[in-house]
């Protein structure tokens, strides 16, 4: 498999893993390890000053896994920029998964505010990976303002519905000059493989791993599926046909005609 290049960094794994919703930090660390990922997303929230705070970062080996802080919770560009700058101060790295989701029910991204925030953040030196609706025009605009990737959604975040936006993601893949990361809604390893076969450069999975019966085993399945899909894309899939095409020879049958 070719390595994935984002900004000036190369990744051997094309599976990014989200760290939300795990039952424990230990389970999260084991699932991350099993997934083979090299990039994990994290969120920023207020410290609870009345209770003890769990330090999830301690469970992530920063030498092996690059952090990708997200701006989840941001409802507009101003909030997303503020969260990005806080994340940079907290992590020491200027990579950000930009997400602006004003609607709490479907968590769909606001393209206009995302573009506004992306312009500010790119100028401020950030490596910006924006989470977007599968909108090819918006993807192009984000690419033009200097985003390092585009991350179109397959279906609503955490819904595990698979790739409902296929036709539009295909257009984005065809047109993009930056890596396309299919994010949100990939619920099964087959969905990840499908995205990779379509030519996506990477996939991001969180809920489908964290909420599975056995996150470590399913993380392994996602790793294999992502690799299988990528290899198939790189080597090419045999063409489809409307009619049958026998796999066995059509001569030498054991009958008299």
């Amino acid at each position: 498999m070719e390595p994935l290049k984002i900004a000036d960094k190369e990744f051997d794994s094309r599976l990014f893993v989200g760290t939300g919703k795990f039952a424990s930090n230990t389970l999260m660390a084991q699932a991350i390890e099993a997934s083979g990922t090299q990039m994990v997303t994290v969120a920023l929230r207020r410290v609870d000053i009345e209770n003890e705070n769990d330090n999830m970062l301690a469970a992530i080996d920063r030498q092996k896994y690059q952090l990708l802080p997200n701006t989840s919770g941001a409802r507009d560009a101003v909030e997303a920029v503020r969260l990005s700058r806080l994340a940079r101060a907290a992590s020491g790295i200027a990579w950000v998964k930009l997400e602006v989701t004003p609607d709490p029910y479907y968590l769909l991204p606001d393209g206009q505010e995302t573009l506004k925030a992306a312009e500010i953040l790119v100028k401020d030196g950030f490596i910006v990976l924006p989470y977007i609706n599968a909108d090819p025009i918006l993807a192009k605009k984000l690419q033009d303002v200097g985003c390092a990737t585009v991350m179109p959604l397959a279906s609503p975040i955490g819904s595990n519905q698979g790739i409902k936006t296929k036709a539009f993601i295909e257009i984005i893949i065809e047109q993009a000059t930056v890596p396309v990361v299919v994010d949100a809604g990939l619920g099964a390893p087959s969905h990840a493989a499908e995205a990779m076969e379509m030519g996506a450069d990477a996939v991001l999975v969180n809920t489908a791993i964290a909420a599975a019966n056995n996150p470590v085993e399913i993380a392994k399945a996602f790793k294999i599926a992502t690799e299988a899909g990528r290899i198939a894309y790189e080597t090419g899939i045999a063409p489809k046909s409307e009619t049958a095409s026998a796999s066995s020879p059509l001569t030498g049958f054991l009958r008299n005609e």
Binding site: G18, T19, A43, R46, N206
Partner: peptide, 9 residues
């Protein structure tokens, strides 16, 4: 504001 990293996607 005191802020920290938590699990997220």
């Amino acid at each position: 504001e005191l802020i920290r990293f938590v699990g997220g996607g």
